[in-house]
Every structure is written in C-alpha cells, then in structure tokens.
Simulated scan of single mutants.
Amino acid sequence: MPAAFAGLEGQMWLWLVAMIRPGAAFFAAPLFGMAAVPVQLRLVISLAIGMAGYATTPFFLPPDGVTSVAGFAMILGEVLAGAAMGFAVQIGFSAALLAGETIGNASGLGFASMIDPHSNAPSTAVAQFLSILATFLFLSIGGHLILARIIVESYHALPVGGAWPAMESLRGLVMFGGEIFAMGLAIALPVGFALILVQIIMALLARSAPAMNIFAVGLPATLLAAIILLAIAAPAIGEGIQAAIERGLDEAQALAVGK
C-alpha cells in the first residue's frame, strides 16, 4: 500500500462507525425512514452528519477492532442511541396519524384506506391528509435540520463507546410514547366532538322517523359535516400537529444530552 494511503483503512473504519448513529436515527425518524427515500441517499446523509460529529468529538476504535466484544458493544450503543432519538421524533409525528384515524372512523371514512408511505400500512384518507400536513409542517419548522443538529450535539454527551442511554432516559421515552394518545385525541377533538354530535342527531332522527333510511341520509350528512369541519378547524389542527412535532424534537434533544 502506498504511504499516502497508509491510514486510509483506519479512517474509513472511523467514518463507518460514525455513520451508525445518524443511520439508525434516520431509519426510525419520520420522512427519512420512508420507503420512497433511497437507501443511497440515507447513507450519504448519514456519512455527512457522522463526519461532522467525528470532527467535533474525535473517538478511537477498540484496540481489538470492531469485530471484538468491545466493538460489538460500541456498535450496539450507537444503534440504540440513534434509534431512540429518531423514534422520539416519530412518536410526535404519529400523533397526526392517530388524529386522522380518529376523525376518519367518526366520519365514516374508515373504509377509504390507502397505504401510508411512512409505515407501509393501510390508513384512512383523513390520516393520509394529516400525515401530508405533518410532513409539510415538519419541513417548514426545519425539523430535519434540527434533528441533524441534535445528532451532532449528542456526540458530546454520548461519545462513541459510551453511548448507552441512561435508564431514566429510556423511561422518559417510554412515558412519552404514552402521550401520543393524548396528543392525537387533542388534535382530533374539534372535529371529532362535532361529528359525535352529528351522529347523535342522526340517531334522534332515526328514532323519531323509523321509516327513513338512516344509512342513505346519515352517511352523506356525516361526510359533508366532516369536510366542512376539517376546513374550519384546519388552523387549530395544524397548531396541534406542530406542537406534537416540537414535543418529539424536545424529547430527542433530552435523549441527546443524556437526560
């Protein structure tokens, strides 16, 4: 090997290890984890962020190499730290999907389902609409840049080789996962509560006029009410989704500093 390339192999191993944490975070995070995002693009972005993290906090490989017990422990810690940060953002993002499922089932649009590009699972049309809205809001507030900054800053508090999150941090992540239901229902509350009132009115009409075909009248009325209510409550829904995304970024920041 030429003398100019003598240290190239060791440097490439360092860059490869530096890619693990951003790669795991992007795999679990929204938008970056979509199946439509090419794997090659994720690798390039992970390498760029990993090199930035290595420049701020240099680290060294175990004496016995990456394939040793210490090397496997280091890699496992990197994967766990990156996945925890990305999953925290994903939890905040999923509040929009939960709100969409709630509104869709209450409005009768539960049968209109399609494949969600984020989870590759079927979801209602309303959930798809709110998911697209959440994606635009995530990009508008610079969520992708904030996540990249959080990953780079995490190398200070959680250096390579000591990236195991504390049990209190993992407990906080689990407790934050329980907040997704509260956030999703809070986002769906303006429209969902009004749709429940519409369903109660339809039930009263069916009770007072048994000869009326409630299915022929109730479904169009509920769909029309859902569309109008979504248009009216769009600003409040957008604020709720943005608050949920920011809450997820705050939780990822707390994990990055080891809290």
Rank of each mutant, 00 (worst) to 15 (best):
Pro122Met: 02
Ala48Val: 10
Met202Thr: 09
Gly10Val: 06
Gly110Lys: 02
Phe72Ala: 08
Thr135His: 01
Val39Thr: 11
His118Leu: 13
Ala48Ile: 10
Leu41Arg: 06
Leu224Thr: 11
Asn105Phe: 10
Tyr54Glu: 15
Leu173Tyr: 14
Gly92Asp: 05
Ala163Tyr: 01
Glu78Leu: 11
Gln11Arg: 13
Val174Leu: 15
Ile187His: 02
Gly71Ile: 00
Pro22Phe: 04
Met85Val: 05
Ala73Lys: 07
Asn120Gln: 15
Arg21Val: 00
Pro63Gly: 08
Ser107Ile: 06
Leu224Arg: 08
Thr135Ser: 15
Met51Thr: 12
Phe72Met: 12
Ser123Trp: 00
Leu204Tyr: 07
Arg247Gln: 12
Leu205Gly: 08
Asp64Ser: 11
Phe72Arg: 05
Ser131Arg: 15
Ala28Phe: 12
Gly218Leu: 04
Ala243Ser: 15
Phe59Tyr: 05
Gly110Ala: 08
Val17Tyr: 00
Tyr54Val: 15
Leu223Arg: 04
Gly23Val: 04
Phe129His: 11
Ser94Leu: 13
Ala29Val: 03
Leu80Ser: 07
Ala96Trp: 02
Val191Asn: 01
Val126Pro: 02
Ile200Gly: 08
Gly82Lys: 05
Ala73Met: 13
Pro159Asn: 01
Ser107Gln: 03
Ala134Leu: 07
Ser113Arg: 14
Ala73Trp: 09
Trp164Thr: 15
Asn120Ile: 07
Ala3Trp: 13
Ser208Leu: 11
Ile187Lys: 03
Gly77Pro: 00
Gly178Trp: 03
Gly177Cys: 09
Leu47Thr: 15
Leu189Gly: 09
Gly86Thr: 06
Gly162Leu: 06
Ala4Gln: 11
Leu189Phe: 10
Ala211His: 07
Ala127Ile: 06
Gly7Tyr: 10
Gly104Leu: 01
Leu31Pro: 00
Phe193Glu: 06
Val257Asn: 04
Ala209Ser: 12
Tyr155Cys: 00
Ile201Arg: 05
Ala48Pro: 02
Val257Tyr: 03
Pro122Trp: 00
Leu195Thr: 01
Ala203Gly: 14
Gly238Leu: 07
Gly143His: 04
Gln90Cys: 05
Leu133Ala: 13
Ala52Ser: 11
Ile20Phe: 04
Ile196Met: 14
Ile187Ala: 06
Thr56Ser: 09
Gln11Glu: 13
Thr222Pro: 02
Pro58Asn: 07
Ser113Pro: 00
Ala106Pro: 02
Phe5Asn: 12
Met212Pro: 00
Leu97Gly: 13
Leu16Gly: 10
Ala25Tyr: 03
Gln242Val: 07
Ala252Val: 02
Ala121Tyr: 13
Met175Cys: 11
Ala226Leu: 01
Leu98Met: 12
Trp164Lys: 11
Ala236Asp: 08
Glu251Pro: 01
Leu47Lys: 04
Ala55Arg: 14
Ala6Cys: 04
Val257His: 07
Phe215Tyr: 09
Ala28Gln: 13
Phe181His: 06
Pro58Cys: 05
Ala25Glu: 05
Leu139Met: 14
Ala157Tyr: 12
Ala121Phe: 14
Leu173Ile: 13
Pro235Lys: 04
Pro30Arg: 07
Ala6Ser: 09
Glu168His: 12
Met19Glu: 03
Ser119Val: 07
Ala203Gln: 10
Leu229Gly: 02
Ala233Thr: 06
Gly248Tyr: 01
Gln199Gly: 10
Leu14Pro: 00
Met114Asn: 12
Gln253Ala: 14
Glu9Gly: 08
Leu158His: 08
Thr56Phe: 08
Ile132Lys: 13
